[in-house]
């Protein structure tokens, strides 16, 4: 018998041995160990400690077994490594990564989502501010404090309709550019409606009909909204039928994202 440290010597001894060369693996105990007693099936087990006692002759067959055992182990472990490599690299799946990495990635995704959402909110607010700034405040609407105490003037009897009262208020309004199609001359009395509470597309805004003030005439039902080419406000196209009677027509402007109307669209057909 031998220990793993000895198996490296075996080939050299095989060459220098004076006996006839073997042609097959030596299985019989005639080489180097005494013959096994025949017909002793119940022979007692050897002292297990014998493997670490001095053994002067190397049993070639046993040395070969140990070498073979190491080879088998290397082969098996090698196959396991190869399979593991295939699973981990070849068909990489998120389930293959450790749980804590997966959790970290999920957290990062959540954080990115929150950041994206916040970024879009900021962008929207910026756009709304920019939208407001693009429209210059109407003359006289900017309040400049006087150097001296202002003289109090009596209120006019008939206050003319004022344009947008304040620059900041424009942020909450949606400008309407109303155009008419038809033989009649018409004009819009509504310049703006309230801005929807959430970001909304033009196709979500509608006015079902414009009803004649005082009744009688058929309502105008062909009213289309789309984004104005300038990017500011909405373009409203009203098709006025040929036989539409003159008069004031009024209709609520709805947005599909909220129940309250954004305002009233008032037109006048002359």
């Amino acid at each position: 018998m031998t220990t793993p440290e000895n198996h490296d010597r075996a080939p050299a001894e095989r060459i220098t041995r004076p006996e006839a060369a073997r042609t097959a693996p030596q299985r019989k105990p005639s080489t180097g160990v005494p013959p096994e007693p025949v017909a002793e099936p119940a022979a007692p087990a050897p002292d297990p400690g014998t493997h670490d006692k001095d053994v002067h002759t190397v049993n070639e067959a046993v040395a070969s077994s140990v070498r073979s055992a190491y080879d088998v182990l290397s082969e098996t472990i090698g196959q396991g490594r190869k399979a593991a490599e295939q699973f981990r690299v070849g068909a990489y799946n998120v389930r293959d990564v450790p749980d804590d990495v997966r959790h970290m990635a999920a957290n990062l995704l959540g954080l990115a989502r929150q950041l994206s959402s916040a970024t879009f909110d900021i962008c929207e607010a910026l756009l709304r501010q920019a939208d407001g700034m693009m429209t210059p405040p109407p003359p006289g609407s900017t309040h400049v404090p006087a150097f001296h105490a202002p003289k109090v003037e009596p209120a006019p009897h008939h206050a003319a309709p004022k344009p947008a009262p304040h620059h900041a208020a424009a942020l909450d309004e949606l400008h309407l550019h109303v155009q008419f199609n038809g033989k009649h001359t018409a004009r819009a009395h509504t310049k703006s409606v309230a801005r929807p509470q959430v970001p909304t597309g033009a196709d979500q805004i509608a006015c079902d009909s414009l009803v004649a003030h005082g009744g009688g005439a058929a309502p105008i039902t062909s009213i289309a909204f789309e984004l104005h080419p300038t990017g500011h406000g909405l373009a409203v196209m009203v098709i006025v039928p040929h036989d539409q009677p003159k008069g004031i027509y009024v209709g609520p402007v709805y947005c599909s994202t909220q129940p309250l109307p954004l305002g009233q669209l008032v037109i006048e057909i002359e």
Binding site: T2, R27, P29, V33, P41, A45, H51, N59, V62
Partner: peptide
């Protein structure tokens, strides 16, 4: 010698 061989291999594996 198969029994003896197996005993020797077992001892070698123990080594």
């Amino acid at each position: 010698g198969s029994i003896a061989h197996a005993r020797a291999v077992a001892a070698a594996m123990a080594g």
